[in-house]
Amino acid sequence: MTAVDGGDIDGFMESEGKNLRRGWTTGTCAAAASKAACQALLSGAFPATVEVSLPGGQRPSFVLAQEAKGDNFATAGIIKDAGDDPDVTHGALIVSTVRRGRSRTGITFRAGTGVGMITRPGLPLPPGEPAINPVPRKMISAAIAEVAGPDADLEVEISVPNGERLAEKTLNPRLGIVGGISILGTTGIVIPFSCSAWIHSIWRGIDVARAAGLTHIAGSTGSASEQAVAEHHSLPEIALIDMGDFVGGMLKYLRDNPVPQITIAGGVAKMTKLAQGMLDVHSKRGLADMEALAQIAAECGASDELAERISGSNTVAGAFNLASEAGIELGDRVASRAWSTAAKVLNSPEMALEILVFDRDGGLRGCAPFTPTSHSSDPAS
C-alpha cells in the first residue's frame, strides 16, 4: 500500500471525463524498498513509512509489505500500485535486499528472483547486467544516499516473486532479457493508459535489432500479421517488432534510429486507418472511414451500387469481402496510401518502406513494395 503527500502530488488525472488514479513504477517501488532496507541495515529498525524523491521532485511515501533482517542484510518489500493503469506488474511485490559491499565499490546491483538479466546488446545496459534500468538505478542510489550518505558501499538485490511468470506477458524474452521482468521508469509515475511501457518496448526492440546488425525489421499490429510477415520474409524473431496500434511511435523512433528496410504489416482494418492518415490505429482514436473506402473501391472500378454497399458495411473486412466477390481488389490501393502516410514520417532515401495487408487467416490482401521514403518516391508511381 502507498500513502501520498497530497501537497506534493496530484494523484489523479482526467481522461474522457473520468478521474483516473496515477500509480508508481517498479523503479519507484524498488527505490523505496531499498531505502527502507538500508535504514534497517544501518540502524536495526525499519521505518513506519518510507519517502523517496522522483525525478520531477515529487516525494511520495510508502508503507512496507515485507521486512526481514539478519547478519549483514536487510530486506524490505513494497506492493506496486499502478493506479488505474492495466499494468501487468500491478500488485506485484517489489523486494530489495541490501547488504554491505566491498570498500570503495559504491552501490552495486544484483538481479534476484524474478528480475531479468540482459543477454543481448542494444539495451540501455550491456549484456550481463541485471535489468534494472538507468533511471531506477539513480533513484535507488539517491534514496540510499539519504540514509547512508553519498559514499556508501552497498550491494542492492532487487527481486520480484512471480516476476518470471509476469515477464511472459511482456516483450522481455524477445529483447533478450531472461529470467524475469525489468525494473523500469523514467518519471517514477505511471500515467493511466499512456502505454509508455509498450512504446518503450518498441524502441528497445529496434535498438536490439540494430545492435545485432539487422537490416530489415517488421512492425506488426497483432499476432496474426506478425506470424504472416515472419513467414512471408523468413524473418528471425529478433526482427519482429510488436508495435500494436502505435505505428507513429515506431516510425518516429526509426526516423532517428534508421534501419535500411522496414515492413509495416497489419490487418485490413488497421491498414485502412493508416491509409486514411491515422498513425495511432487504436479503435479509440477513430474508426475507418467507410465512405472513403468506398471511394477507393470506385477508383478500382467498383460500380456505384457496390460502392454504396461498401460505404454501408459494418466492418472493413466485410467491405473487402464485398469488393473481392465483385473482382475488385482493394488491398494494393490501401497499401499504397498507407505507405504514403508512413513515408511522410520517415522521409529518408536511406530507408525503404514496405506495407503488407493481411486478412485474419494470414492471407496477403495487399502490398506496397519496398520504396525509399523520400517525399519524391511513391510505390504507386
Rank of each mutant, 00 (worst) to 15 (best):
T25K: 14
D84W: 09
A31Q: 01
I79L: 08
G57A: 12
P86L: 14
C29A: 08
A48D: 10
G23L: 12
T75D: 03
K18Q: 10
P86Q: 11
E16Q: 14
V50R: 01
A74M: 09
A33M: 06
P47W: 09
N19Q: 12
T28G: 02
T75F: 05
E16A: 14
S53N: 07
A68L: 04
A82W: 02
S43F: 05
R99K: 11
A68I: 01
D81Y: 08
L64I: 04
F46N: 02
G23H: 04
G44W: 06
G56L: 12
A30I: 04
G106M: 12
G106A: 15
R59P: 01
V95N: 00
R110M: 13
A111H: 04
A32L: 07
F12A: 08
K18H: 06
S34C: 14
T89V: 06
I79E: 02
T28N: 05
K18F: 08
V88F: 10
D87M: 12
I107P: 00
A92F: 03
A33W: 00
R22E: 03
A30V: 04
G27T: 03
R100L: 10
G91C: 06
C38G: 13
K69F: 07
L93A: 09
Q39L: 11
I78G: 00
S15V: 15
T25H: 12
A48P: 03
T105C: 10
A65Y: 04
R21C: 11
P47Y: 10
V95K: 03
G7K: 15
D8K: 12
A65D: 14
T25P: 07
A82D: 03
A48S: 14
K35M: 10
K18G: 08
K18A: 11
L41V: 10
G112H: 14
L93R: 07
L64M: 11
F73E: 03
S61C: 12
C29Q: 02
Q58M: 13
A32D: 01
R104W: 11
G27E: 02
R104T: 08
P55Y: 07
I79Q: 00
G112N: 15
G70M: 10
C38H: 09
D10V: 12
G101A: 09
F73S: 03
